Computed example of a mutant assay.
Amino acid sequence: MGHLDAGGPDRAITDPEEASSVLEAAYAPNSLLLAGRPAWLELRLKTMRLPLADVGAVRIRGDMRLEAPPPRACCVVLRPRRGGVTISTGRETVRVSPGTLAFLPPAPCFRYADWGPDTELTTLRIDNSVVSAHHPLDAEHMLRPEARPLLVDLRQDGARALAWVMCLLAAEIRRPSGMLTSGPVADHVSGLALSSVLSAAGRDTTMPSSARNRILRRALTLADSQPHAVPSMPELAKSAAVSVRMLQEVFRTELHLTPTTYLRQLRLRRAHEELRRGDSSRTTTEAVAHRWGFTNYGRFARLYRTQYGVNPAATLRQDS
């Protein structure tokens, strides 16, 4: 069951040491320094613990520099409702503002600066163990040591579900008797939040080319190792130790086509090879098409003509 476990919205924290302690309890150890002129700070924080993630509502006024050592045990998601913040790792810097979201993997040391004048954030803190247990195929990519902070545009199709979930969480965390205090609802919403985060973050195209090539090589090796059958897309993903979604991204990036298109082309090629070896007195083009997963013969024939310039029957007669 979800429960509220931090100071309410009427409690403003102005002491930097207390603010650092509160943020450490909610997220991770940190070093906090005031940066503005004059130096001042007002922090409000409310958190809610759900079955698969901790939700936070943070409001920061004033300017400060916050440095957090590697949060190796968790991933953090930040979505500004207003204002914004610049996040850097030493290698890379991203500016998070309304309409965007930052996914922070568990490896780098993060520095937060240049806060907007009145910044409000909705956050998710997700333990690595949760990602590994519920989405093991995503964990290899999402939790890898070289992972970098990812900026997600919430207007993109793949991130709209996440935008909706974050809006819901932002509203419900401010309602002490809201629907997230119900165990079944909290279970469902936290599961949806986790899946939405991984779906959006899984679109990260900054994966090193060596990692993409390794995933692609594993998938293609399985496909080529079965001359009498064509694996399904889930089987390809399993062989590459990634999710179907991540496999789709790798295929689009490396081959400029989807796994579905690749598998259809492979089935068409296998059908062509069988027709060339076939005996028209013993088999039919319809039987060959059906054997390779083409249940609609008319569509198979059109694809075949486009690829090979002749009808399937012509290939079978020619090579019989």
Score class of each variant (00 low, 15 high):
residue 256 H to S: 12
residue 131 V to F: 10
residue 203 R to N: 14
residue 44 R to M: 06
residue 179 M to R: 12
residue 6 A to C: 13
residue 99 G to D: 01
residue 141 H to M: 04
residue 172 E to W: 03
residue 200 A to N: 00
residue 232 S to M: 10
residue 164 W to F: 14
residue 253 T to S: 14
residue 7 G to V: 06
residue 214 R to L: 11
residue 287 A to P: 02
residue 273 E to W: 08
residue 55 V to S: 00
residue 68 A to D: 01
residue 309 G to Q: 07
residue 95 R to I: 12
residue 39 A to S: 14
residue 76 V to F: 09
residue 286 E to W: 04
residue 52 L to V: 01
residue 306 T to M: 12
residue 91 R to E: 13
residue 231 P to M: 09
residue 53 A to Y: 02
residue 268 L to Y: 01
residue 191 G to F: 11
residue 86 T to D: 09
residue 245 R to A: 15
residue 305 R to H: 14
residue 98 P to D: 04
residue 215 I to P: 00
residue 148 R to T: 07
residue 300 F to T: 00
residue 303 L to D: 11
residue 223 A to R: 08
residue 87 I to K: 05
residue 178 G to M: 02
residue 225 S to V: 05
residue 131 V to N: 07
residue 314 A to V: 15
residue 107 A to F: 04
residue 3 H to W: 13
residue 55 V to H: 05
residue 235 E to W: 03
residue 85 V to S: 09
residue 274 E to F: 04
residue 288 V to N: 00
residue 270 R to V: 06
residue 199 S to Q: 13
residue 320 S to F: 03
residue 210 S to A: 13
residue 94 V to L: 15
residue 139 A to P: 03
residue 249 E to P: 01
residue 73 A to H: 08
residue 117 P to N: 02
residue 4 L to I: 06
residue 229 A to D: 10
residue 155 R to E: 12
residue 156 Q to H: 14
residue 256 H to P: 01
residue 164 W to M: 13
residue 84 G to Q: 03
residue 115 W to Y: 14
residue 277 R to Q: 15
residue 157 D to V: 08
residue 110 F to W: 10
residue 279 D to R: 15
residue 38 P to S: 09
residue 30 N to T: 06
residue 285 T to I: 01
residue 20 S to E: 12
residue 311 N to R: 15
residue 312 P to G: 10
residue 72 R to N: 06
residue 88 S to L: 00
residue 167 C to S: 14
residue 303 L to E: 15
residue 162 L to R: 00
residue 102 A to E: 01
residue 238 K to M: 13
residue 130 V to G: 06
residue 276 R to L: 13
residue 303 L to Q: 11
residue 94 V to E: 05
residue 142 M to W: 04
residue 310 V to E: 14
residue 291 R to C: 01
residue 252 R to A: 14
residue 121 L to H: 04
residue 218 R to T: 02
residue 186 A to E: 08
residue 269 R to E: 09
residue 230 V to T: 15
residue 191 G to Q: 11
residue 202 G to W: 06
residue 76 V to K: 12
residue 196 S to D: 02
residue 125 R to L: 09
residue 81 R to G: 15
residue 89 T to A: 03
residue 214 R to I: 01
residue 190 S to I: 02
residue 227 P to L: 09
residue 236 L to H: 04
residue 209 S to M: 13
residue 262 Y to N: 06
residue 144 R to P: 01
residue 206 T to L: 10
residue 313 A to Y: 11
residue 178 G to L: 03
residue 241 A to K: 13
residue 97 S to Q: 11
residue 8 G to C: 12
residue 62 G to T: 06
residue 223 A to D: 06
residue 231 P to L: 04
